[in-house]
Write a protein that binds this DNA or RNA. Sequence first.
DNA 1: AAGTGGTCTAGACCACCAC
DNA 2: TGGTGGTCTAGACCACTTG
Lengths: 260, 260
Amino acid sequence: MWGMQPMSPAPDDAVSPGQAALARTDPRLPLHARLREVIAERVRAGEWAPDQPLPAESTLVAYYDVSLGTIRRAFRDLVEEGLLERRQGSGTFVRRASLTASLFRFFRFGTAGDGFPQSRILSIARQVGTQTITSALGLEAGSEVLHLHRLRLYEEKPVLVEDIWLPLPLFEPMERIGQDDLGDLLYPLYERTCGQIVAAATEELTVDVATAGDALLLQCARHDPVVVIDRVARSHDATPLEYRRSRGLARTFRYRIDLR
Amino acid sequence: MWGMQPMSPAPDDAVSPGQAALARTDPRLPLHARLREVIAERVRAGEWAPDQPLPAESTLVAYYDVSLGTIRRAFRDLVEEGLLERRQGSGTFVRRASLTASLFRFFRFGTAGDGFPQSRILSIARQVGTQTITSALGLEAGSEVLHLHRLRLYEEKPVLVEDIWLPLPLFEPMERIGQDDLGDLLYPLYERTCGQIVAAATEELTVDVATAGDALLLQCARHDPVVVIDRVARSHDATPLEYRRSRGLARTFRYRIDLR
DNA sequence: AAGTGGTCTAGACCACCAC
DNA sequence: TGGTGGTCTAGACCACTTG
């Protein structure tokens, strides 16, 4: 057998939709890679919510007509890729982004207290996106976006100044959110109000010097070094959902990396 | 059977040394994890040189008395961990560190030319290690170390100033190396002259402002922002081999990270 | 108790590499 | 040509989670 579907009418049964989907993938690839693609496609299409289990291994074995080991290999690769997570006894689930690895974690704060970072929204308004903004969000030049300006504090002391831009047809509900509902965590809010789930992000770190505005908000001197973090957050199907630019005092920044 | 070795005298044969080594590991762990530990230990002990293949799967199946799938799982995890690499048709090998992911890659240079970075050794001398240096290298306070001072350039323009400290009984041959032999790549030189293989490194990135010395060597103004990279390089058995501090112009620095 | 993923085994054929 | 790792299958039992 072995990765081949009989193209002539099978004597016993018609091909299942699963086998048909597999047949549409590149036949030069190993079966586990083709299976992985098919499943990843279904996940990205939003077929399963993050809290709902995917079909069990045994179900998929029958549906795609592959062996258990092949299903497990595909799942293992998808877990490694970060798309799925598996819990013994419960099932296989679409993974929410945790984003705990964010560069934001690498700002050391005055005391080693375990308090939560706080947020203060300074303004929220529509604007016409600049070239930088629209190209980061994959929009046409001149598109309207929603702009949030906020300050992040830790134990009452300012740590980061953030500008956040959201594509507008999609994030209209955010405009009508009261200041009080704009808590510390934006991503769960995006999911609740706009049904948009942040699955991944790319951050880029550079160093600049403080502008007059930075100096005022971060309580530092002009021309003090600041770290700039540019982030583009995306959904599972890679649609840009948010463009964010954060500026923080370089003096409090420290980043570690392990090389092999 | 199943992860159990008969403790009473077996009727057919004595246990092999491989089975004995497995028996010494934590029996609560899955067999593939125990096997992985045993093999990692042999690699770290230096049993195989980086260019010499490990025993074939089939050999290890007999030696450890486990199934092929279990060997493959252990190998796969060790590849993922970065200790081994596998080449179809050739064998399984101990991996040399490439360290191409080094933060040095993240300095943008004036032109997008594909020239190689160059090095210029400014000095090389013994010194008594400071507390920072000896603790980074895991030496006793007051130990002697070898200090290299060098400048890294790209297309004739200075990019990084580096201070490098090496533990001294181990790296004595480096002291007698002529300036001409101190080419661009230090790690192959360590292997050739001192038999020390760098397998991993930890880097820590912070931001500072240029000292008078930085300004002179990097051709910038005092108090310009600089990026500081602290690196500790280690052998496969985690012995610190090198402590290095690099300083480069923050203006030319850019770092990207993908979050999931 | 039922269902899920996790571990382990055994055996087959394929694709690649070096001699 | 012989040996290596890569893919695929089939089937067993274990450990965990949920009801």
